[in-house]
Simulated scan of single mutants.
Amino acid sequence: MLEGTFLTALDPAATAAPRPTEAYASLRALIMSGAIPPGERINIEDAARRLSVSPTPVREALAGLESEGLVLKVPLRGYRTTELLTREELVELYELRRLLEPDAAAKAARRHDAALRQALDAELATMSSRPAPLPAIELAAHDERLHGIVFEGAGNSLIARTYARTHCHLHIFRLSYSGTYGHHTVDEHAAIVAAIDAGDDTGAAAAMREHLDLSLERVLGIYS
Rank of each mutant, 00 (worst) to 15 (best):
M1P: 00
L2W: 08
E3V: 13
F6G: 11
L7R: 15
L7M: 11
A9M: 04
L10M: 08
L10I: 13
D11W: 15
A13V: 14
A17L: 07
P18M: 10
P18R: 09
R19H: 11
P20T: 07
T21I: 12
A23T: 09
Y24P: 01
L27I: 15
R28G: 02
A29F: 08
I31Q: 09
M32F: 03
S33A: 15
A35F: 01
A35S: 13
A35L: 05
G39A: 05
E40F: 04
I42Y: 03
E45M: 11
E45A: 12
D46Y: 04
R49L: 15
L51I: 03
T56S: 10
P57K: 14
V58A: 09
E60C: 07
G64R: 15
G64I: 12
L65A: 03
E66K: 14
E68T: 10
E68G: 13
L70T: 07
L72F: 05
R77I: 13
R77H: 05
T81P: 05
T81E: 08
L84C: 09
E88M: 07
E89F: 13
E89W: 12
L93K: 01
R97G: 04
L99E: 14
L100Y: 04
D103A: 14
K107N: 03
K107T: 01
A108F: 09
A109K: 06
L116G: 09
L120G: 04
A122H: 05
E123Y: 00
A125F: 06
A125E: 06
R130D: 00
P135I: 00
I137S: 08
E138Y: 11
L139S: 01
A141K: 12
A141Y: 00
E144Y: 15
R145L: 01
V150K: 08
V150F: 03
F151R: 06
F151L: 15
A154Q: 08
L158H: 08
R161L: 13
T162P: 00
T162K: 01
Y163P: 01
R165M: 07
H167L: 02
L170V: 05
I172F: 13
R174A: 10
R174D: 12
R174H: 06
S176L: 00
S178D: 12
S178A: 12
T185V: 12
D187S: 10
E188A: 08
H189Y: 03
I192M: 13
V193S: 03
V193W: 04
A194K: 11
A195L: 06
A198Y: 03
G199T: 04
G203S: 09
G203H: 07
A204T: 01
A205S: 07
A207P: 02
A207Q: 06
L212H: 10
L214N: 14
L214Y: 04
S215R: 12
S215P: 00
L216G: 10
E217K: 12
E217F: 07
V219E: 14
L220G: 06
Y223F: 14
